[in-house]
Amino acid sequence: MKTHIAILRGINVGGKRKILMADLKLLFQDLGFADIETYIQSGNVVFKAPTSDKLEHLIKKAIQEKYGFEVPTIVRSLNEWEKSISTNPFLSSENEGIERMHLTFLKETPKQENIELAEAFERGNDQLSIVGKDVFLLLEGKYSQSKLSNQFFEKKLKVEATTRNWKTVKKLLEIASKN
């Protein structure tokens, strides 16, 4: 069984689309996954699965059937997660605190013309770097104040997206590495 990390978008935000992490863990058990661990209430799940095939589809479908709403779901293997972390171009920047860094995970690699549209967008002092299925962000202020939101990337890149701050990205690696 291989270790994976699932990141769910838009649950437990403002009291809407509520899923308790204990219930989410049970749902993952019902899907046949093992060594399941959740992190904070925003839909981060580390788990082991016997296969890597169609995990996003299985999880998304199970949530839809149980809760009656759709949740964008992105799953990465531990190896993919490690590669994403090592690829961050902003880690080498001097004096860059992790509180300014975020990683937007994309469902699939966007088309080059869509990448060019996103990169050409006027974004002030916020920086971005698109590498494969990852968008690395180095923001001037808070994520909630940036124009570089999930909706922005979904519109410009035409793929599903969900974002985590760098602290969460690193914590999920820590959990997955123990798993």
Rank of each mutant, 00 (worst) to 15 (best):
residue 67 Y to R: 01
residue 67 Y to E: 02
residue 67 Y to H: 04
residue 68 G to I: 10
residue 68 G to F: 13
residue 69 F to K: 03
residue 69 F to S: 07
residue 71 V to I: 12
residue 71 V to A: 08
residue 71 V to P: 15
residue 71 V to D: 00
residue 71 V to K: 12
residue 72 P to V: 07
residue 72 P to G: 08
residue 73 T to E: 13
residue 74 I to A: 02
residue 74 I to M: 12
residue 75 V to N: 01
residue 75 V to E: 00
residue 76 R to V: 04
residue 76 R to G: 03
residue 76 R to I: 00
residue 76 R to E: 00
residue 77 S to K: 11
residue 78 L to K: 06
residue 78 L to Q: 09
residue 79 N to Y: 05
residue 79 N to D: 08
residue 79 N to H: 12
residue 80 E to M: 13
residue 80 E to C: 11
residue 80 E to F: 03
residue 81 W to S: 04
residue 81 W to M: 06
residue 82 E to F: 03
residue 82 E to H: 07
residue 82 E to W: 07
residue 84 S to D: 05
residue 84 S to E: 12
residue 85 I to S: 15
residue 85 I to N: 05
residue 86 S to E: 13
residue 86 S to V: 12
residue 87 T to G: 12
residue 88 N to G: 06
residue 88 N to K: 08
residue 88 N to H: 11
residue 89 P to G: 07
residue 89 P to W: 11
residue 90 F to H: 02
residue 90 F to Y: 07
residue 90 F to E: 14
residue 90 F to V: 04
residue 91 L to R: 07
residue 91 L to N: 11
residue 91 L to T: 00
residue 92 S to V: 10
residue 92 S to D: 12
residue 92 S to M: 11
residue 92 S to N: 04
residue 92 S to F: 08
residue 93 S to F: 13
residue 93 S to G: 08
residue 93 S to Q: 13
residue 94 E to C: 06
residue 95 N to S: 12
residue 96 E to S: 10
residue 97 G to T: 11
residue 97 G to F: 13
residue 99 E to L: 04
residue 100 R to S: 11
residue 100 R to H: 08
residue 100 R to V: 07
residue 101 M to V: 01
residue 102 H to V: 00
residue 103 L to F: 15
residue 104 T to S: 06
residue 104 T to F: 15
residue 104 T to I: 11
residue 106 L to P: 09
residue 106 L to R: 15
residue 107 K to N: 10
residue 107 K to F: 14
residue 108 E to T: 12
residue 108 E to K: 05
residue 108 E to M: 08
residue 109 T to S: 08
residue 109 T to M: 10
residue 110 P to E: 02
residue 110 P to F: 01
residue 110 P to D: 03
residue 111 K to N: 02
residue 111 K to M: 07
residue 111 K to V: 07
residue 111 K to Y: 14
residue 112 Q to M: 14
residue 112 Q to L: 11
residue 112 Q to P: 09
residue 113 E to C: 11
residue 114 N to H: 05
residue 114 N to A: 02
residue 115 I to G: 03
residue 115 I to M: 01
residue 115 I to S: 01
residue 116 E to P: 13
residue 116 E to C: 09
residue 117 L to T: 02
residue 118 A to W: 14
residue 120 A to I: 06
residue 120 A to Q: 12
residue 122 E to S: 14
residue 122 E to Q: 10
residue 122 E to D: 05
residue 123 R to D: 08
residue 123 R to K: 13
residue 123 R to S: 09
residue 125 N to A: 15
residue 126 D to A: 09
